[in-house]
Every structure is written in structure tokens, then in C-alpha cells.
Amino acid sequence: MTAKNSLKRLTLLALPLAAVAASTAHADEWAPTRSIEYIAPANPGGGWDTLVRTTARVIQEEGLAERNFAAINVPGGGGAVAWAQIARDSGNPHKLFAASPPIILVPLAGTSRYDHSDFTPIARLITDYSIVLVSADSDYESLTDLVEAIRDNPGLSVGGGSAPGSMDHIAMAGMASAAGLNASDINYVPFSGGGEAMTNLMGGHVEAVITGAGEASGQLEEGSDIRAIGVSAPERMGGVLADVPTYQEQGIDYTFDIWRGVMGAPDMPAEAVAYYEDLFAQMLETDGWASARDQLGWIDAYQGSEEFGAFLDEQKEQFSEVLSELGLRGE
């Protein structure tokens, strides 16, 4: 009797266990059941938008997913409007968005209630680096020249393509700090895009400009009015940028990544995360991706969900230090 009973009890116990086992077996096979909302938290044309549209196109053309990746633009507040919307959609496995350093910088500045820890990291995909530019006839031959000039004259204007406390400013201030200057000695002049900053450099309105290397590379061909004196990459970049020395080569121990990746709604189920991680890893292997990536000047920098999450935490620590030094940390 007792034996029979305990056996019965065992089966009762085993049933849910079996169910759990079955669902883990299913985990690898989770697939979207409807279209994926793939959000660019900005207007068409910018970095996030390009990432979303390019990856969606490659995934579709290479036939990697059964369901459609629908690109949606939710502009506003440098991303804050979209993040607030996505944060409300906890657990939704059909909602992804493009992310880059602003997901850390904007909350640190105090203008978004949500930061990277509110969302599910899926994968880091690519990276670009910062580049420091001067006009072609400038006296600054190297980054060291520029740093020395700033040491003598902190009023020297350095233009960038984004607001104070965001990407370009942090990249410049961090470099200055590593070179032994005060981060707040940089007289940073914000323009509304890297293009506008470079135009102002050509016209001689600012002394130097910091912007994304990819955006600047089109400007650095022969006959150009501007010249690059340093990239924030750990090693030299390719193409027209092959002659540009890194910060480290010039004795300034600092690198800065302008990474871009994909994140999902808060608390996305693990099996969905695994599905997307795998999907993006596959996408990076395709020829369609390789040609798009090279044309846009991107560099592959894949990290899976877990690694990406740890990387984001690290970035937050690094950025909040620089922002505090600049006195730009919000609460």
C-alpha cells in the first residue's frame, strides 16, 4: 500500500518535472509567433535607424527568420520616449530596439527614468570609434600637440556632433582626462550632428572636432580640408583611416567604443533571448551583412546577451566617472 502510494506520489511529482524538462527542450525551438516590432528610438536617418533598417533587411533577404522584422521609428528625448514606451511592455518577446551609448548616458544625465538595466540585453553587433579632426592647414600635427595646446589655453574650442554629456563630449573628455588634463578643461561646442561640426571645422570656426570615425571617413580622402590626428580604437583602422594613429600609439592610454546593439523589452523570456542571440549571430555570418557593413564603415563586435549585459554595466561605471568630473551628472 505504502509502496504503491509512494509510487503514485512519485509520478505526481515527476509529471511537472517532466513538463519542465519538456519546456527546456522546447527552449531552443522558440520562434516568434507574429511580426517583431523592431524599434529605432529616433527619427529616420540616424545611427539607430540605419542599424534597424539594415539588420531587418539582411535578416529578410537571407531568409533567416520566418516572421517579419517591422522597423518602427519612435523619436523623442534622445531615446527617452521610446524607452518609456518599451519599459511598459514587460515580458513581450516580440519587441526589440536598437541601442548604443545614449542608453547609458541619457539616464545618467537625468533625462530618462529608464536605463539599460531596465531592458533585456540581446546582442552587441558592431562598433565604431571616435576620431579627432583638425583642419588640413592646422599646426596640430598630433594628438599630443592638441592636448598641449588645450593645456595652455583651455578656451580652445572643440566641436562635436552631440549634446554636452553625450557621446562625443564623453569621448573627448575621457581622452583629455587620460592625457592628464581636467575633463572640464575641454571647451566643448555641441553641434546638431557630426556633419555640421565638420563644416564648422572647414570654415575655421572651431579648432578641432570629435565625431564618429565612420562618419568622418568620407571626408578624409585626398584633397580634403580636414585631417585626422587620432582614433579611439585599440588598433589602427582600415581603409582611408589606415594612416591615422591610435590614442595609445601617441601615449594616451584610452579607447572609446561607439558600439551598437540590440536590446529587448524588460524580462524577456530566456528562450526568446536565446532565439534572437542566435539569429543575430547567424546574420553576422552572411555575405549580405558583410557588404552592408563594409559600405557603412562598421566593424563587427558581437557579444551575446550575458557578455553584453556585463559590458553595459562596465560602460555605466566608466561614463558616470567622466560625467561626475564634468559636473554633468543628473540625479
Binding site: 520616449v81 549634446a163 555641441p190
Partner: peptide, 20 residues
């Protein structure tokens, strides 16, 4: 909206709709 020069919010009345 957000002031590009300082990142300060101006007349947004605490709502994200007016950030831009």
C-alpha cells in the same frame, strides 16, 4: 524641450512628450 547646450529640460512640465 531639452536644451542642446546644457541638457537642461525647459518647460517640459515633467512629461516625456515635451522633451523634444
Amino acid at each position: 524641450g531639452i536644451d542642446l547646450q546644457t541638457g537642461t529640460e525647459r518647460y517640459t512640465f515633467g512629461t516625456t512628450h515635451l522633451l523634444d
